[in-house]
Design a protein around this nucleic acid. Structure first.
Lengths: 133, 133
DNA sequence: TATGGGGCTTCCAGTCACGGGAAGGTCAAG
DNA sequence: CTTGACCTTCCCGTGACTGGAAGCCCCATA
């Protein structure tokens, strides 16, 4: 398989696949002409990586997940711990965003949004009143 | 005022303040010795920027907000539009994170988390079953 | 056989919003 | 006069790619 077919089937851009090779996440073979020659197993790994990335795992977490995936003697506890830690990151990020959302939507709803210059959003930002940390 | 005092009072790292000058968000004066000489108005702007940033506005949005703030003939509608657009971004990001959270927490709760290798998290990532887009 | 167009390769630069750290000038206190 | 805290600029690194240039490679068609 050449890179374009793998890209299509894995749902990842070719650029990303080259990048994943560069950082050692995959090691496709090479054809005589220098082209990357992907096996089914490479495709499988790339799909795995794509799904892990889309769940928000960082590249390094993906690397760890791959290592666990390929380690037949892994303990599921290790996988779970990694995933739970990531879940906490997600929850924290959601809370952070919700706080922004709460503050900002309050400011927005207080703003007339007309042709006049008076604007509680700007005065809120300027004064820090009712504003974030 | 020198940079450290401004940094303390604005709650921003000195590095960040220098960066903001570099990209033209502020224009502090210079003392004879080459040190930046901040006015109260610079401090005020920096505090404004810090609050806008902490609400998640990008640097370019902050630049636009500052411009509106300093434009006495602004229409509050313009400010509101900017803020609302940003609110939509926040809401979208929250939804995205919640989707990750839902998928991942399902996988996590299905995982025994013991010494055995069997792990629904890994098989989920490998198969794409019940997994994200 | 020439040529055209797509695909493949590498390498370099840019993104965003800074942070770290080096090399060196400046200032106030002891 | 020295010490140490401050200030300056400059350059590199971050994460996870993305875009683009320059240059092979391969196949089909005229």
């Amino acid at each position: 398989m050449n890179i374009k077919e793998v890209a299509t089937r894995a749902g990842l851009p070719a650029k990303t696949i080259r990048y994943y090779e560069e950082i050692g996440l995959i090691r496709p073979l090479r054809a005589a002409n220098g082209y990357r020659a992907f096996r089914e197993s490479d495709l499988h790994k790339l799909a795995f990586l794509g799904r892990a990335r889309s769940l928000g795992f960082t590249i390094e977490e993906c690397r760890a997940l791959m290592a666990l995936y390929e380690d037949q003697s892994r303990a599921s506890a290790d996988v779970k711990a990694l995933a739970q830690s990531h879940l906490e990151q997600i929850a924290a990020k959601i809370e952070e965003l919700k706080a922004m959302q709460a503050t900002l939507s309050e400011l927005v709803s207080a703003c007339a949004g007309d042709h006049r210059p008076d604007c509680p959003i700007l005065t809120g930002l300027a004064s820090g009143k009712d504003c974030c940390a």
